[in-house]
């Protein structure tokens, strides 16, 4: 069963008169139901464009994305909370006019450990707390596909680690199909059950299954080296990568 299917998607932007940048080049990829795929690559390699295309925020120039858009939720690089709404109201924002909005919002806030801050305003939260609220907002949407665009990039090491743990446990318990974009190799290895390495708008490699948690330090280091080589363009042998994972 497929949670999301990207077929030959290409996308280019006009960044200046006469200057066109191809962000996605004929990308074909499937994300199986319940998988946690991490899309990894250097800045500007097309990771975010791929995610935004899947979310429907960008229309591909060619190709298609097949997914149930009504059940796709996104967590952005920044929390993007509405400053005029309380924490709970921010979570409720995406729920429409459902009667059980309050209960659902509170249960999602509880899931991310922020139920007691439901009345707080966004400017009273730390960066990590705000990003947790953004995660609760996405979960309250009851998504089938959760898209996360470097959500922990701006956080300190300890908060990032804690949120990674929380995310893993939530995603596993809810069996959510999750696409997580990052440029942090260690974060990618820690989170992924499937690693998609992108370079210059293309999919360089797909590594699966990946289980960074059960790897020995040496295996992690080997995988890390391998990923860095792929991103550096020295090794594009998919079979080797899959085995190594």
């Amino acid at each position: 069963m497929v949670g999301c299917d990207v077929c030959s998607a290409s996308k280019a932007y006009n960044v200046a008169p006469g200057c066109r940048v191809e962000a996605l080049k004929d990308v074909t990829l499937s994300f199986p139901d319940g998988s946690l795929s991490v899309i990894l690559g250097k800045s500007g390699c097309g990771k975010t464009t791929l995610l935004r295309t899947i979310a429907g925020l960008e229309r591909p120039d060619s190709g298609s994305v097949k997914t149930d858009r009504s059940r796709v939720a996104m967590v952005f690089q920044e929390p993007r909370l509405m400053p005029w709404l309380s924490v709970r109201e921010n979570v409720e924002l995406v729920m429409g006019d459902a009667d059980d909005r309050f209960e659902r919002a509170m249960s999602c806030l509880e899931l991310v450990g922020l139920a007691e801050f439901s009345r707080a305003m966004p400017n009273q939260l730390s960066g990590g707390m705000a990003q947790r609220v953004a995660l609760a907002r996405a979960l309250s949407f009851e998504p089938k596909l959760l898209l996360m665009d470097e959500p922990f990039g701006a956080l300190d090491y300890f908060t990032r680690k804690a949120l990674q743990e929380e995310l893993m446990s939530i995603v596993r318990s809810k069996k959510l199909t999750t696409l997580f974009v990052t440029h942090d190799v260690d974060e990618a290895i820690s989170l992924a059950s499937r690693l998609v390495v992108m370079d210059d708008g293309r999919i360089s490699s797909v590594l699966e299954p990946v289980d960074g948690r059960s790897m020995s330090p040496q295996e992690r280091e080997d995988l890390r080296e391998l990923i860095l080589k792929i991103i550096g363009g020295k090794n594009r042998d998919l079979s080797v990568l899959s085995k190594g994972a």
């Binding site: 996104m74 005029w84 709404l85 924002l93």
Partner: peptide, 26 residues
């Protein structure tokens, strides 16, 4: 970026206007 949140979560144009644009411009 705030308006994009509305789009990403499938809010209609009217909902984005009422719930994001108006409070933001207030």
């Amino acid at each position: 970026k705030l308006l994009e949140v509305g789009r990403a979560f499938g809010l209609s144009r009217l909902e984005r206007f009422n719930r994001i644009l108006v409070p933001s411009a207030l």
